[in-house]
């Protein structure tokens, strides 16, 4: 009986090894199963919810929706956003708080999305870009509102 058990274990062991080899052999001969993505040549389309960096939406008249309320600045856990406000004079002669510069530190951002959720006017959103590498860290500090842009009418 000892001999039968011995031969059985050897047989089972060898078949288990051969089964594994059959599987790797299958993948060796079936090149359709290859899952490599040839990244720089073939770029994948990222889903619209993908969080790559914070951008501010501007329409064709170069108007944004940011009122400078600093809700995003308060929501940010890493002090990624710094908002500088100024006072505009409205036609009726009143002073009104408005956005001057929206400074965004990409190097500090963790893409947690809390600023987007906090924004009451949907002024900022997440873009799908992800190739952020640059040679100088200072290039990662961005101003999100375009030069000369102003607040869209009707956004309070």
């Amino acid at each position: 009986m000892f001999l039968v058990d011995y031969i059985k274990t050897v047989y089972n062991g060898v078949t288990s090894l051969l089964k594994g080899m059959r599987m790797t052999g299958y993948y060796f001969t079936h090149h359709k199963e290859i899952i490599t993505q040839q990244y720089p040549d073939v770029k994948q389309v990222l889903p619209e919810r993908f969080r790559g960096e914070v951008v501010m939406t501007h329409d064709e008249k170069n108007e944004h929706r940011c009122t400078g309320c600093t809700a995003c600045e308060l929501a940010c856990p890493n002090a990624t956003i710094k908002i500088v406000t100024k006072f505009d004079i409205t036609p009726d002669g009143k002073k009104k708080k408005a956005l001057d510069t929206f400074v965004y530190h990409l190097e500090l951002c963790t893409m947690c999305n809390l600023c987007i959720v906090a924004c009451p006017t949907d002024a900022i959103k997440m873009a799908q870009s992800f190739e952020h590498s640059v040679y100088d860290r200072s290039l990662l500090t961005k101003v999100l509102n375009k030069p000369g842009s102003k607040l869209m009418e009707g956004v309070e």
């Binding site: 990222l46 889903p47 919810r49 993908f50 963790t110 893409m111």
Partner: peptide
Amino acid sequence: EETCGARLT
């Protein structure tokens, strides 16, 4: 990625 917006965190 499609639902949450990120792959890991």
